[in-house]
Amino acid sequence: MESTFMRTVRARTDAALASGDLQPIQADQVVLRDQGLSFIVRWVAALAAKDAAGRPAAGVATTLPGGPRNPDFNPFLNPDPALLVGPLGDHHVAILNKFPVCLHHLVLARQEFSEQCSPLEGIDFQALATVLSSEGGLGFYNGGAAAGASQRHKHVQWIPESDQNASLRELGAGLPGGLPVGGAARHPSLSLAHCFVRVEAGQGVDARASAHGMLQAFRQACAALDLRTDADGLLPPCNMLVGDGWMLVLPRSQEHFQGVSLNALSFGGTIYVRDPAQIDAIRAAGPLKALAGVGMPA
């Protein structure tokens, strides 16, 4: 039976598509194989529109009257009502991503401002756990501009489970079987610094316990990768993905590989490009080389 939350998401999506407040998803894709792993490389026309609009992640128009985009515009403090799903716990709101990479792509944004590059906290994982425990799917975090974040306001994101959406299923199949919760591992095909931690996260898992476990796993991975916090936030910037019983954390050196912006979802097997020609750049190099090119040395 569909949850009340998902019914609300679907209704808001349908209304926003009909009104034009939500960009429709138009995508072409190819599937590339690299060291036995499958990668979907998808051209999403909405991402080019996102660039043209000044890289907003969700919300309303970003231009000042008669002038260019306001660099201080924050689409998460006062979300566009057409895209607002509603409160999620005491500290977050769920918002439809105005430029979605898939249907029902959500931003889970803090109600009060906090820097995106600061480390994730318990309240962020509570928001993720609330959705993951009800709906499954994949939660992810782009921790800073070099990790693919387009907004400073603290937020995590969620996409539903689908064979066409990013996930940790395929990478997880290459990790040690039977690893207990809290056990850490590296994937032999990823030639960059990263840390997988076994977690209880997904549909049917108790949300409160899951949030606590995800927070501990994130701190464990950050310690293993020597990620440090200073006045500028978490250094170096990092991505986090969680779903299918695993959390993956990896530090980032830069956002782009040969002009292609790579965010957390790229490490979940789905690379989104803004121009069809960028597919050729990924094909020529190979997806794993592209990922290694924006990570840190192992």
Rank of each mutant, 00 (worst) to 15 (best):
V31K: 09
D90T: 14
L103N: 11
A277R: 14
T13P: 03
L248C: 06
D14I: 11
P160G: 09
D230N: 15
V294P: 00
D72F: 14
R169M: 10
R55L: 15
R10D: 07
V249K: 01
A46I: 07
V9Y: 00
L88A: 08
P75N: 10
G148I: 02
R42P: 04
N74I: 06
G137S: 12
A223L: 13
R198D: 06
V93M: 08
L234H: 00
R283M: 10
T229M: 05
R228Q: 15
L168T: 01
A52G: 11
L288H: 10
G259N: 05
D206C: 14
I159T: 09
P68K: 06
A27F: 07
V197G: 03
N70Q: 11
L241A: 04
M214W: 00
D226F: 10
W246D: 05
F113T: 05
R69L: 03
A94R: 02
A147G: 05
G137K: 02
R219H: 14
F196E: 03
R12N: 01
S134H: 11
H187D: 09
A94E: 05
G259S: 09
M1A: 14
D124C: 02
P65G: 06
V93L: 06
L132C: 07
S150A: 14
R252V: 09
C222G: 12
G86N: 13
P287T: 10
G89H: 08
R219W: 09
T8I: 07
V197F: 04
G59N: 01
L248Y: 03
I282E: 01
F99R: 04
T63M: 12
A149K: 00
S191A: 13
L215I: 08
V242I: 15
I271E: 04
H194T: 12
L22H: 04
D275V: 02
I159G: 00
R219M: 14
Q164P: 03
D232F: 06
L37F: 05
T229A: 07
